[in-house]
């Protein structure tokens, strides 16, 4: 009974994760500039991938596999914001333009920075 419940829940999480991944991809195509696209890719992408891994953990019904899947989710949650942040920072320093309707930009107040690590 409990095992069946885990299977049903796993199936729901699997479809939800796949749907979030698809929405992240649609967002990356539809949003107007790199910085807004990063929002879609980092949040919806991480949740999509994480939900699929959680589904694997539930469906496998094996403690060793579940622990590995949960560690995979933790890894994903820890690394996705780092890569999004690095990409946003690199794009800003390289001078990639913001969308013309950006309502406020405090970064432009700062004088141009020279990229470190050179």
């Amino acid at each position: 009974m409990i095992a069946d419940l885990a299977l049903y829940l796993g199936g729901v999480l699997l479809v939800a994760g796949a749907a979030f991944s698809l929405l992240a991809a649609i967002g990356v195509v539809r949003l107007p500039d790199l910085y807004t696209r990063l929002h879609a890719a980092s949040k919806a992408g991480a949740v999509g991938g994480g939900l699929v891994l959680l589904a694997v953990a539930l469906v496998s019904q094996d403690a060793a596999v579940s622990i590995r899947a949960v560690i995979g989710v933790l890894f994903l949650i820890m690394t996705t914001p780092v890569s999004a942040h690095l990409l946003a920072r690199a794009a800003y320093i390289a001078g990639y333009p913001f969308w013309s309707n950006t309502v406020q930009n405090d970064l432009e107040v700062e004088p141009n920075k020279i990229p470190p690590h050179q």
Binding site: L31, P32, T36, F98, W99, N101, T102, V103, N105, L107
Partner: peptide
């Protein structure tokens, strides 16, 4: 999509 956006830094 653009109507719902108010991006800002």
């Amino acid at each position: 999509i653009t109507a719902g956006l108010r991006p800002a830094v």
